[in-house]
């Protein structure tokens, strides 16, 4: 299993592990939609154990962070531990959202 999620009293946790690739993107979106269904209060996305992080997953994490900000849902991201995942992010000029920063840090290309 590479995606698990749970929800209790508006507090959701989505955990990804191993290959967080495109094959779970649809599933992740569905999980996130449920996580934000009212009355949502908090969301934790756990990426600590991923060995791969696909661009589509990164996109969804950003969208979730933005959604959390808009809906005043506490957002907590547990960042990947795998150095290869981190290096890959850096190589691609990608970042992950911070716990309270809603906007993608990137600005449109000059």
């Amino acid at each position: 299993m590479s995606l698990e999620w749970s929800r209790e009293d508006g507090v959701s946790q989505v955990s990804l592990s191993d290959q967080a690739d495109l094959s779970i993107a649809t599933e992740l979106k569905a999980a996130l939609l449920q996580a934000f269904a009212p009355p949502a209060t908090a969301l934790t996305i756990d990426l600590r154990n991923v060995s791969e992080l696909h661009i589509t997953i990164i996109q969804l994490v950003w969208v979730a962070a933005r959604e959390a900000c808009a809906k005043k849902v506490a957002f907590d991201l547990l960042r990947p531990n795998d150095t290869d995942v981190i290096n890959s992010l850096i190589d691609c000029g990608l970042t992950l959202p911070s716990n309270n920063a809603p906007e993608p840090a990137q600005e449109p290309a000059a």
């Binding site: 996109q59 969208v63 691609c92 990137q106």
Partner: peptide, 18 residues
């Protein structure tokens, strides 16, 4: 040196996850 631009992301409901 890479710089990714994620500014075109739609909202959660609208996003095509793939």
């Amino acid at each position: 040196e890479a710089r990714a631009d994620l500014s075109q992301l739609p909202s959660l409901t609208e996003i095509d996850p793939e």
